[in-house]
Amino acid sequence: MKAFIRGAGVVGGFGCGLASLEAAIRKHPAAAGSSVDGFSAPTFTSKTDLLDRLIPPRTLRRVDHYARMAILACHLALEDAGMANGLPENTGLVVATGMGPTANTLDLQPADVAATDLALSPILFSNSVQNAAAAYISMLLKVRGPSLSINQYEMAMPLAFQAAIDWLEEGRTETVLVGSVDCFSKALHEAFLNCRDDRNGDGGRRAFPVGEGSAFFILTRSEAQVTRHPFVQHVHLGGENRTDGKPAPNTHVLLHNGAGKNTDRWGQASLHANFAHLYGTFPTSTGMDVAAAMLLLRTERLLTRSFPQFDGGRAFNEDPRIGCLKQGETGDWGMVVVGR
């Protein structure tokens, strides 16, 4: 079943909103990032100041950076969809994370600290619970549909899209707000230092900084409500020993941002690209890739600028498909295919 994207919001090292991401793609800067105190490698961290202009700061006084990124991305998705009056009350919510909020809260406190000395406050503990971001989003947007928080490291975002499409398909809801969030942490920094040597769009290899951010999408079943954005055609899940799902399709363009090195097995005819130089690499970066794919499909000039060798060929114009591939360190892979 196609799931139509009615709106999208992104928060990352490039800034806030689709316009910022589009500007970053146009500019096509080299991997840079900025330094964070105490960490050796550059990173792409996100600013959420904009949220304080959208929601009274008092309302957000207990909300941590992890949930703030997710809330801001959701608000930007609503704005992009032109849904100023909010989402339908029965909107479903799926939040994917690779490491969850605990990476920066309680979970990484030194093990040699006595349990009784853990710096626990009710707020810190509450924010460390893995579905805290989903809880804040549902409270602030007043959505009471089904709610799901998934923590499956690099496969979390493909699984989240799959769950959202399942809900639409079985009629559990007509609208789903689906997205991802991961925040920079010592663990994330360590996790990706050793595996950030990904293939870039030129076929070479390039090291990318660690990133953080959030990307949310408003999915609907009805094409009638959709004006500008592409649709999610399929979600494919598989692995080295996996038999589920259909074989990964050939796509015109393949965006990838994961640990896997062997991307040649997917779509020999595809153009390969990696936009991690715009937002860094992190477990749920598939959300950013899907947003980038949306922009490429929406704006042909952006596509030909990003892939001059393809030059807007006829085949692409007829039935364009972009596959957003995440290869996990364990051999699992997930691909979200976006079409126009």
């Binding site: 619970v129 579905n131 989903a134 928080s149 499956q152 996996r242 364990t330």
Partner: peptide
């Protein structure tokens, strides 16, 4: 999934 060699999708849900 890994222990039993299961070949389908696997997902951990964190809905408290």
């Amino acid at each position: 999934a890994r222990h039993f060699g299961f070949s389908g999708p696997h997902m951990t849900i964190v809905n408290a």
